[in-house]
Structure formats: structure tokens, C-alpha cells
Simulated assay, not measured.
Amino acid sequence: MSVQLDARPVRVEGRSRLAVAGVTVVAALALWALLEPVAGIDLAAKQGSGTVEVGAVSVFFAAAAMAFAGWGLLAILERRTVNARKVWTVTAVIACVLSLGSPLTSGIGAGAKLGLASLHLVVGAAVVLGLRRTALSATERC
């Protein structure tokens, strides 16, 4: 019987952070496709003195940016704190809830407000639930 001591913890298969980012983007684009082209909801928001149409490219980049930002924060917390998973989850949920202020105040019309808020929630749920699963526990890191 041999015991292998590695300096770095081994990640369990199926817990890939890149996959979480991909799923986040696909989920956001799928919801956008249902809201905009299929349901015909005009996802427009006020920005400054004008309006912005939220299209597929915006959804793609925003979802990817949030997934990678969450990944980066989780990686930093794993190196700096013992309770990285717990701290990250609380922080991510608070960020998701606070992000709802933007679509609910800037959306033009009830449909846009609800549609944009649902996009925020889908991205938030995918990032929080997905990346939380990939977080290394304190015992896995030590």
C-alpha cells in the first residue's frame, strides 16, 4: 500500500470551472433567445440619456465576464482564506441580488424589466451553483 503525497490537491473530474463558464453563457443565450426572438420582448434599457438594446453579443460577453470574475474571486479566496467556499458563496449571492437593481430600474417596460432581471438571475444561479461545486474544501487545499 503506497500513499501519495502531492503538494497540490487533485480536482475531481466533472468540477471544471471552464465548463461552468460555458454553461453560464449557453444558459444566458438560451434565455435571451426565448425572450427576444421567440416571445418578442424588447429587451431595452435606459443608459444615460439614451436607450440600449440588449442583444446576443451583450448577453454573451456579460455572462462570460461574470463567470470569469466569479472564478477569479474564488481562486483568490481559496489562496487567502480557510472558509473560501462559504465566503465566496455569500459574496456571490449578495452580488447577484444587488445586480437586480439595474434591470428593475433601467428596463423600459415591464417585459424588459422582468426579462433583464431573469437574465441576471439565470447567470447568477449558474455561476453561484456551478462554481460553488468546484471550490476546494479546506482539507483538500491543505
Rank of each mutant, 00 (worst) to 15 (best):
residue 81 T to S: 14
residue 8 R to N: 01
residue 105 T to N: 04
residue 88 W to M: 15
residue 40 G to N: 09
residue 133 R to Q: 14
residue 17 R to W: 03
residue 69 A to C: 14
residue 66 M to R: 12
residue 60 F to K: 02
residue 25 V to T: 12
residue 100 L to F: 01
residue 125 A to D: 05
residue 16 S to Q: 11
residue 93 V to G: 08
residue 125 A to E: 06
residue 97 V to T: 06
residue 22 G to W: 03
residue 28 A to N: 05
residue 134 T to G: 09
residue 98 L to C: 02
residue 112 A to K: 05
residue 57 V to S: 11
residue 124 G to E: 07
residue 61 F to P: 01
residue 137 S to G: 12
residue 141 R to Q: 05
residue 35 L to H: 00
residue 87 V to M: 14
residue 107 G to H: 03
residue 80 R to H: 13
residue 109 G to L: 09
residue 119 L to R: 02
residue 121 L to W: 03
residue 25 V to F: 09
residue 142 C to I: 07
residue 36 E to N: 04
residue 100 L to V: 02
residue 105 T to C: 00
residue 19 A to R: 12
residue 62 A to S: 15
residue 53 E to T: 14
residue 12 V to H: 10
residue 60 F to P: 00
residue 118 S to E: 04
residue 56 A to F: 01
residue 73 L to A: 14
residue 83 N to K: 13
residue 142 C to A: 09
residue 42 D to I: 02
residue 14 G to F: 09
residue 97 V to Q: 08
residue 83 N to G: 10
residue 65 A to M: 15
residue 140 E to P: 06
residue 99 S to G: 14
residue 135 A to K: 11
residue 140 E to A: 10
residue 129 L to V: 15
residue 138 A to Y: 10
residue 92 A to Q: 06
residue 105 T to I: 13
residue 78 E to L: 12
residue 134 T to E: 13
residue 111 G to H: 08
residue 137 S to D: 11
residue 51 T to W: 07
residue 122 V to H: 07
residue 77 L to S: 11
residue 83 N to E: 15
residue 2 S to Y: 13
residue 131 L to E: 05
residue 19 A to P: 00
residue 89 T to Y: 07
residue 5 L to V: 12
residue 27 A to D: 05
residue 75 A to I: 08
residue 15 R to M: 06
residue 90 V to L: 15
residue 89 T to P: 00
residue 28 A to P: 03
residue 105 T to K: 01
residue 9 P to N: 08
residue 89 T to V: 15
residue 93 V to W: 12
residue 118 S to Y: 02
residue 141 R to H: 01
residue 5 L to S: 03
residue 117 A to M: 09
residue 3 V to N: 03
residue 111 G to R: 08
residue 13 E to H: 07
residue 18 L to N: 03
residue 21 A to L: 11
residue 51 T to H: 04
residue 104 L to S: 02
residue 11 R to E: 11
residue 2 S to N: 14
residue 8 R to D: 05
residue 45 A to C: 02
residue 101 G to F: 05
residue 93 V to S: 10
residue 61 F to A: 13
residue 120 H to T: 13
residue 135 A to F: 11
